[in-house]
Amino acid sequence: MLGRLSPEAKETLARFMQPSTIIGLSILVGIVALGVIVPLASPYDPYATSEDVLRPPLSEGPAWPYILGTDSLGRDLFTRIFYAVSIDLAVALVTVGLAVSIGMVIGLVSGYFGGILDSVLMRIMDVLISIPGFMLAIAVAAALGASLFNAMLAVAVVTIPIYARLMRGVTLSVKEQLYVTAAKEAGLSSFRILFRHILPNAMAPLIVQSTIELGNAIIYIASLSFIGLGAQEPQPEWGLMLSTGRKYLREAWWYPTFPGLMIFLVVLAFNLIGDGLRDALDPRLRGTLKIRRSIVWQLLKSET
């Protein structure tokens, strides 16, 4: 496969395949794969209670063994945890998607048109960002009522400013560049300039930022569920499972531990991928990497 790619494509691919990206992707792909396979293959209904309450991992079950044990209602944890993959990941994707699209539009409009519109929009973003995020999310989620959907909206609202500011910065710097000025003079509509010329330039930092924010979104949503403002019983959701399981930590360590571990692994995967992408996409690091490494080496060597 690789052999047929052009040399440029190979180089790009190599650039993206940082070790951290590879590790992060493997974790993510592994979890997603299990998230697809387990619900299809598992003989257990994630919602059905049973008499096998709080069984330890690997104990005997009526069909499969209970690989990760059972919860306080006798439901198979392994099945529930991987059922939750699609819920938690979908929630994170929608949350970040929502925040990115709204933030992007605000940032683009604000940066491109400037003036009073810019001041007003950015003031609003300043206000949003000067209320600590999770606190605002709690207030919003509480105002809307406790549900997973509302938790999603709450987290999206509080993360909009991140993208709006990012986007505005990029827009401002690109706007003055020659080709945009040229496009303007050529009589292109604002809409086309925004989407044809400015947006592509902003993609790299947006992608890096949103990858990392996917991890944060998972933590936020899980935390909201943890304090009772997110998912509701009997929804299989990691934060809720962790929250309910915490009561049984002493007698059934597996119940809260595995959902917690899943949150950790997924967040870790997103952070690793984000790191890798940043290294690959950050233009400042590109090309200078080799020279820089040699300087450090010389510097340290000459000192010792």
Binding site: L73, G228, P234, T244, K247
Partner: peptide
């Protein structure tokens, strides 16, 4: 579930029943 945390689990059982 504010004053009785176990109520959530009882409700889940009733729901399943």
């Amino acid at each position: 579930t504010e004053e009785r945390a176990e109520r959530g689990e009882v409700a889940a059982v009733i729901q399943d029943n």
